[in-house]
């Protein structure tokens, strides 16, 4: 198992707003390992941005333990020397060109002149901004600004990139471009930490996720494991004409004139198969079906709400 780059252990963060206290994170625990593409999911106000701000040292935690690169309190130079952050809306001076902006960020990262020239050229090409590189950023579309933000983030070849809602507000083409860029980075072994509530994006990109509900981590782990654990055993069966489907409570229409019913285990499957045979029908298929991330997310959120 690869080394952990980010660890939260029982982290709590509370904000005071006038006379009330708002708990943004409550004993949040999760780990991001080197090479992970980690998605932190949650509805608006679930505490995703607060978690990211705490990790980046922009907010102080009230309790628990937080480690980045194995250190409880990495200083700013070490943290931002090895990590990069792409905020929800990359903010840049509108009057400067894309190239000037990248040169500025490269200098702040301490790149020497030769490396800087090489890396600026490479990243501009990588994010597909070759033609627009010398135009003022003020004239860029939202997608172009986002790509420039990614270029600035990858300029110094960081070990981990924190991305806050990287595809929010982009049109489908822009979303696809950003997603492809992130997939290419992940392929090169860069660890990605994504904050998002766009579940489709997370499902396509991430191998590990954590779900935050009102500041609490309600699920964490490998995406495949989490979705398989919530998978169900489904039986598809055919019934002869004249048989009332109400004999099989919960059965739903499936493709090809079949019926579909979820069973809990193999004993239940055997019992159902017997009933189908008695009714004159036949079992067409019995298979485990994966739920998608959206269903899983909703299940987790509903379970959390029921507990409350």
């Amino acid at each position: 198992m690869s080394e952990p780059l980010v660890e939260l252990r029982g982290v709590t963060k509370t904000f005071r707003a006038r006379r009330t206290r708002v708990t943004a994170l409550h004993e949040a625990t999760f780990t991001v390992r080197r090479g992970d593409v980690f998605g932190l999911l949650g509805a608006n106000g679930a505490g995703k941005t607060t978690a990211m701000r705490c990790l980046l040292g922009l907010s102080r935690i009230d309790g628990g333990e937080l480690r980045v690169f194995g250190r409880a309190h990495p200083n700013r130079r070490e943290l931002f020397g090895r990590a990069a952050h792409l905020p929800e809306e990359p903010q840049m001076f509108a009057g400067a060109s894309g190239r000037e902006t990248l040169v500025y960020h490269g200098r702040l990262c301490g790149l020497d002149a030769r490396t800087l020239t090489r890396r600026v050229g490479e990243t501009i090409e990588q994010v597909g901004l070759v033609e627009a590189a010398d135009r003022p950023v003020g004239g860029y579309s939202k997608g172009m600004k986002q790509r420039l933000g990614i270029a600035a983030a990858i300029l110094s070849e960081p070990e981990i990139i924190f991305l806050d809602e990287p595809t929010r507000g982009l049109d489908p083409i822009g979303r696809r471009q950003v997603r492809d860029l992130l997939a290419a980075l992940a392929e090169r072994g860069v660890t990605l930490f994504l904050n998002s509530h766009l579940l489709g994006e997370i499902e396509r990109l991430c191998n590990r996720v954590a779900i935050l509900v009102r500041g609490e981590v309600r699920a964490e782990g490998s995406l495949a494991d989490l979705l398989t654990a919530k998978a169900g055993l489904f039986v598809r069966f055919a019934l002869p004409d004249g048989v009332d489907p109400a004999m099989f409570p919960g059965a739903e229409h499936a493709d090809g004139g079949l019926w579909k019913l979820a069973v809990t285990d193999t004993a239940a499957l055997a019992e159902l198969a017997g009933r189908i045979a008695v009714a004159g029908g036949r079992v067409v298929a019995a298979q485990t079906e994966r739920v998608d991330l959206e269903d899983f997310f909703l299940q987790v959120v509903r379970a959390a709400e029921e507990e409350k």
Binding site: R77, E78, F80, P87, A94, H105, A152
Partner: peptide
């Protein structure tokens, strides 16, 4: 105002 300070501070500079 335009957020440049915030983006500058996410670099290894005090």
């Amino acid at each position: 105002q335009d957020g440049t300070l915030r983006s500058t501070l996410t670099r290894p500079i005090s």
